[in-house]
Amino acid sequence: MSAGAFDVLAYSADAQGSHRSELTGVGLPLPEPLRTELGYLRSRLSGTTAWLSLVLVTPTHKNARITAFLSGWAYERYWLADALDALTAEVGAPPAVRVGLRARFAPLVEAVLANLHGSALPAVHMAERAVDGVLLDAILGHSIGRASGPVAADLERLRRVLARQQAFFTEEAGRLLASSARARRLSRRRLTARAWPIGADDDPVRTAAVLTALSAADAAWARRADDRIAELPGLAGLGIARRSAANPGRPVLRTTLRPVVALGRLVASAVRRTG
C-alpha cells in the first residue's frame, strides 16, 4: 500500500495548539441558539478519547501512519474545544463523561469484532471521521452565518483547522475504500448502523435541537452533505445526513432484526474463519 499525499509528519509538527491568544470574539455576548450550537460542537470535538478507545483496539492501531496523524489530531481537537469554551465563556473542567454499561464494554465488543473484520476496519474508521467532518462542517457553517464579525472570524479560524484534518480523513478513507470491496461493504453497513454526528446517540436532545435549527435555516444542507459523502468510494446513496436530520440522535437505519442479523453475521464469519 503506497502512502498518501497528505504529509503526516508536517501536519503533526504543525498541529495547532491553544487559540486563545488569537481569538477576537472572547467576551462578546452570544445569542442563546448560537451558544447552544457551539456548546454542542464543543462536545463533539472533545470526544476524542472515547472514539480512540474504540479505534485503537482494532488493527487500525497497527497503521502507524494513521496513529501518527491521530496523535496530532487529538491534540488539535483538545485545543479546538478549548477555543469554543473561551468563546462561550465556559469555565472549569468539562463535565465528567458518564459512561453507561454499553459504552464501558463497547471497546471490548469492538476488540472481539476486530478479530473477525480485521483489515477492513481502518477504512471504516477513516470513513467515520470523514462523514463526521462533513456534518460538523455543516453545523459550523451555520454557526458562522449567525455569528457577529469577530466571533465569525474566530470560528473561521477553527474551521480551517478542521478542514486540514478533513483532508487527511477524506484521502485516507478514499484510498482504503477504493482498494477493498470488503471495506466498502463493511463501511456501508457500519455507517448506517450508527447515529450522527459521532456521539449523537449519547446526546439526542441537543442533536435534535441543532439539526432541526440547521434544516430550518437551510433545507438543502443535508442534500449537500450527502453529496459530499457520496464522493467517497462505495458510499453513494446512504442518505446519512438526510436521515439523521429526519431522525436526529438515532441510527441512520433501524431494524428490529438488527441484533439477529448481527449474530448471524458473527456466526457466519467465525465459521468462514475456521473453515
Binding site: 503533526s12 498541529a15 476524542t48 478519547t49 472515547a50 480512540l52 478507545s53 485503537l56 483496539v57 492501531h61 496523535s71 496530532g72 487529538a74 491534540y75 481537537r77 483538545y78 473542567a93 468539562p94 465528567a96 463523561v97 459512561v99 464501558r104 471497546p107 471490548l108 476488540a111
Partner: peptide, 26 residues
C-alpha cells in the same frame, strides 16, 4: 499501544487523565 491499553479501561473517562493522555501520546 500503551495508550490503547489504558483507553479500554475506565481510566480515560477521568477528565484529567484524558487530557494528559492526549498531550502525552503526542
Amino acid at each position: 499501544c500503551y495508550l490503547r491499553d489504558m483507553l479500554v479501561t475506565p481510566s480515560h473517562t477521568d477528565g484529567d487523565v484524558s487530557t494528559f493522555m492526549t498531550m502525552w501520546n503526542r
